[in-house]
């Protein structure tokens, strides 16, 4: 072993540390959301919430998002709801024309990307949160209902779950703790 080697100092160590640190944060935290772990997708149709709820169109939230008679939540409306107004183009926008050509005419359901999509093993009761706990939509969905353009959909390619906008179990539990709501496994799991 040469003297030179012995005096090597900590340079290589620090270099390794910083490099790994940066690579780890850049590729694996969902802040940057870059491939290969994360993917970004645009919604199939650039739906404008503001436009629809503006005075000249005059839709209310409940027109599309409502409770069904059995207490379940309707979620995102189906194509049949869109067709009620968009059988024929309502305006000049090329987005709308594209939407009619691609979905309305062939009668194909729009594959919406659900920002707050919960896993299949999770049961979320909208009615419990809205009717019983009197929460507002914004508390969980933020300003989504006031956007002019749908935000980018960020998801993980491994777990296939959306990022950023989705609620994870820790958040559910925090809120349930705060409001002293039940938090048995079967309160939310199925």
């Amino acid at each position: 072993m040469s003297e030179e080697e012995k005096k090597g100092g900590w340079g290589a160590f620090i270099l390794g540390f910083i490099l790994a640190f940066l690579v780890g944060w850049y590729f694996f935290s969902n802040w940057f959301a870059v491939p290969p772990l994360y993917g970004k997708l645009e919604q199939p149709v650039a739906f404008d919430h503001v436009k629809h709820t503006s005075e000249d169109v005059g839709c209310s939230c409940e027109d599309c998002h409502y409770f069904r008679d059995d207490g379940t939540w309707s979620g995102v409306p189906r194509l049949e709801k869109c067709i009620e107004c968009h059988e024929e183009p309502q305006g000049e926008s090329p987005e709308e024309r594209k939407f009619i050509e691609e979905y309305v005419e062939p009668g194909k359901e729009i594959p919406w990307l659900i920002y707050s999509r919960q896993p299949k093993n999770v049961f979320f009761s909208h009615v419990a949160h809205i009717k019983i706990a009197n929460m507002r939509c914004e508390e969980c969905h933020g300003k989504l209902g006031h956007t002019r353009k749908p935000p980018v959909y960020v998801y993980s390619r491994v777990s296939r779950y959306p990022q950023h906008t989705v609620m994870v179990m820790e958040e559910c539990i925090d809120c349930h703790n705060k409001h002293k709501a039940k938090k048995y496994c079967f309160t939310c799991h199925k």
Binding site: F67, D69, D70, G71, T72, F123, S125, V127, A128, K131, I132, K190
Partner: peptide
Amino acid sequence: HRYQRAKEKAML
């Protein structure tokens, strides 16, 4: 899940 279903209906 049937409880959850029944409960949703009742809560409505």
